[in-house]
Design a protein around this nucleic acid. Structure first.
Lengths: 201, 201
DNA sequence: CTTTACAAACCAAGCGCTTGCTTGGTAGCG
DNA sequence: CGCTACCAAGCAAGCGCTTGGTTTGTAAAG
């Protein structure tokens, strides 16, 4: 209860959490298929066979990584729109939250979620898709809110997909040590979506 | 000479070309690592060992797929801006050409180029990066041309990356049999870049 | 038109290695 | 005592790739 938790990649610091965090890092660096169970075991400091005390298969590790990170970031999305009812500020909050997920603290696991999708079994794909649907619904509600205020031009589904492209691709170029901050990038993207400049809050 | 050539995925219809085209399709569907040389051989209708008469290693097949498709589409990009000097029309041409590459006739090979990057050896990564640099320079020249005409707001590098995100992600959702055409999508993206509506040419 | 020559394209078989995963047993702790 | 976490060893399967030999297409020589 009173225990403090350190959260890395959206995972806690239990043996299971540390295992998932290490796996996420390796999956992102090398891809799921090129990462062997021996790689993961070495990273955590145990024997490869011992992994299967925690997870029945290697693919279940991937499944768990994706499940944890999407749950974690769905909650972050919720909190991003909790503060305000202004549609533009809600959208800004969503963009910031998604960028935070993709290039911020959960970047390794998020990258895995995006790029290692087909390594899941069809059944696990279905389960994970259901989690993503919840996440996406938060976006669609906000975009429809924008539309009803006359602040959105074009089809909401298409706009959402263009945003997804811009945010998810940022993991391939954004430099956390560079001059551009996440919030600055969020406002640049926001400007492209609603078609005008927004002043800082 | 007088022979007609059928181009699929930017590859000709020689044994080598058909092999590359089949490999591109499989690499896109299953990923490079999950695709076995036996898969590729079965697709072409030969024995798995016979592949190595054409390519020294499986990774060289991937390298060839990427090289062919990027050369092919760099040429397409060149032709897209050859017709006009108007910066906005040039940009529209580039966006159309890139969408054609990603969700049109070379979609399988382009997807491989984007998603299987780390399966290349470091040396082949370097070589392929050099080819991409030529491709990207065409984009940057056009964007700088836009800027000098006062039609571009914001940093050209960042804008290019946002465009890359929007276009490359489209391979994950665009439906060739749906209502939205490639040219329509191009104009939607164009609108997000230059911030205003453009009428059809 | 046939023969000869030769290289490109391919087959059949399998080798050596890595992979995900199993098994049977043990250390530490409440 | 029992439960969680782990080790040491190794198995069966699948992998990329090799090897030695055979077919096929092409075109000049007779």
């Amino acid at each position: 209860m009173g225990q403090s938790q350190q959260i890395v990649n959206g995972m806690d610091d239990s043996p299971r959490g540390k295992l998932l965090s290490a796996a996420a890092r390796l999956f992102r660096e090398q891809g799921f298929d090129r990462t062997t169970v021996r790689d993961i075991a070495r990273e955590v400091g145990i024997q490869s066979g011992s992994l299967f005390h925690h997870f029945p298969t290697k693919e279940d590790i991937l499944y768990a990584v994706m499940g944890e990170v999407i749950r974690f970031n769905t909650e972050r999305l919720r909190q991003a729109i909790a503060g305000t009812h202004d549609p533009v500020q809600r959208l800004r909050g969503l963009i910031r939250a998604e960028l935070q997920a993709i290039i911020g603290d959960t970047r390794e696991a998020m990258s895995v979620l995006v790029y290692e999708w087909r390594c899941l079994t069809p059944e696990h794909q279905k389960d994970t898709l259901a989690l993503r649907a919840i996440y996406e619904q938060l976006w669609m509600d906000t975009l429809e809110g924008l539309r009803s205020h006359g602040r959105l031009r074009g089809d909401a589904f298409i706009i959402r997909r263009l945003i997804t492209g811009m945010t998810s691709w940022s993991s391939n170029w954004f430099d956390a040590h560079g001059n551009l901050t996440i919030d600055q990038l969020a406002d640049i993207i926001l400007e492209r979506v609603i078609g005008e400049r927004t002043e800082d809050a």
